[in-house]
């Protein structure tokens, strides 16, 4: 008696891997629901380390998903992050693909 193969939905294959990473998914979800947020806010909301946020944000910025603005508020440096239109579209697409793929699975 052979083992029955599981049909993995094809949709999973086209998931955006840049968003699919759990850390980036956390950061991008947070930025999706707000207009913009600074580094400190992302850090307190996610409990991620500064280095972790920094490296993942660089990847998202390089992909054009996130826009970064650096400035000084008094003597304090402030780094603001904003999801670009491209980033919003990519996240919407990711959500829909994942939702369709998961809803298609048997109970």
């Amino acid at each position: 008696m052979g083992v029955k193969a599981i049909n993995i939905p094809l949709e999973f294959a086209v998931l955006d891997r840049l968003i699919h990473d759990p850390t980036r998914l956390t950061l991008i979800s947070l930025l999706f629901v707000v207009e913009s947020a600074d580094f400190v806010f992302l850090k307190t909301q996610t409990n991620l380390t500064a280095g972790n946020i920094s490296s993942h944000m660089t990847k998202l910025e390089n992909a054009g998903y996130v826009m970064v603005k650096k400035r000084f508020v008094g003597k304090r440096p402030q780094t603001m992050f904003r999801l670009t239109a491209k980033g919003r579209r990519a996240f919407d697409k990711y959500r829909n693909i994942l939702s369709d793929a998961l809803s298609g699975l048997p109970e």
Partner: peptide, 12 residues
């Protein structure tokens, strides 16, 4: 507050 929890701008 802001130095501790950061700055956020909510959606319109």
């Amino acid at each position: 507050s802001e130095p501790r929890v950061g700055v956020v701008n909510f959606s319109a």
